[in-house]
């Protein structure tokens, strides 16, 4: 009995020790914005999965293309059907590393993130800055970066070419909780 208690205690301890390094969210927020002379298009995804390991700065983000919500529903359908082909490529994935993470405080700290962004099965290196800070019970990561539509071979027919920007601004706000 005593051994069992000890075992449980140890397992618990191991669990906690891991939990302090990894932080996860399942309701991260990522949006993108396309500005053109004809119209502005914006879509939001509030079901972003993200995990960060503060022991080595590694980070992974995964989202379902289908979960982007547009103001115009028909646009959302075309986004999935024609542009992103979400039946073929359901996810967008980022994996990378926060450079020189150091110690985290309650104040925002600007860090560089380098990694690889995979959309429509195409992986491209990407580098961006982000603000990171410690919160009561988590890690907040916030920032934005630009993505070239042509990098991911997204075909835009000439008839709507003026409606869609060539460069899309992607913004993220990920509030992670301890993972165990």
């Amino acid at each position: 009995m005593k051994t069992l208690k000890l075992t449980l205690l140890l397992v618990l301890f191991v669990g906690i020790a891991q939990g302090q390094e990894k932080f996860i969210t399942k309701q991260g927020h990522i949006s993108f914005f396309s500005h053109s002379p004809v119209e502005d298009i914006e879509a939001d995804n509030n079901q972003v999965l993200s995990i960060v390991d503060i022991s080595n700065g590694e980070i992974a983000v995964s989202l379902l293309i289908q979960s982007f919500i547009f103001e115009k529903s028909l646009m959302q359908e075309h986004f999935n059907e024609n542009y992103m082909e979400s039946h073929k490529y359901p996810k967008a994935i980022f994996r990378g590393k926060i450079q020189e993470l150091g110690d985290l405080t309650e104040d925002n700290k600007t860090v560089n993130i380098e990694g690889e962004l995979t959309i429509r099965g195409i992986s491209k290196p990407i580098e961006t800055t982000a603000e990171i800070k410690k919160m009561d019970d988590g890690i907040a990561l916030k920032g934005s970066f630009l993505v070239e539509v042509k990098d991911y071979k997204i075909k835009i027919p000439s008839i709507v070419a003026n409606n869609i920007a060539k460069t899309i601004k992607v913004s993220f706000e990920l509030i992670h909780q301890p993972y165990n």
Binding site: V11, V14, G15, Q18, K22, I24, K26, L49, S50, I51, V52, D53, E58, I59, A60, V61, S62, I93, R95, Y179
Partner: peptide, 17 residues
């Protein structure tokens, strides 16, 4: 415990999805 430690971050996201 140590297995889950070694698991890579994307793998964890897959499991947690």
């Amino acid at each position: 415990g140590s297995v889950s430690n070694a698991q890579d971050l994307l793998g964890i996201l897959e499991d947690e999805a």
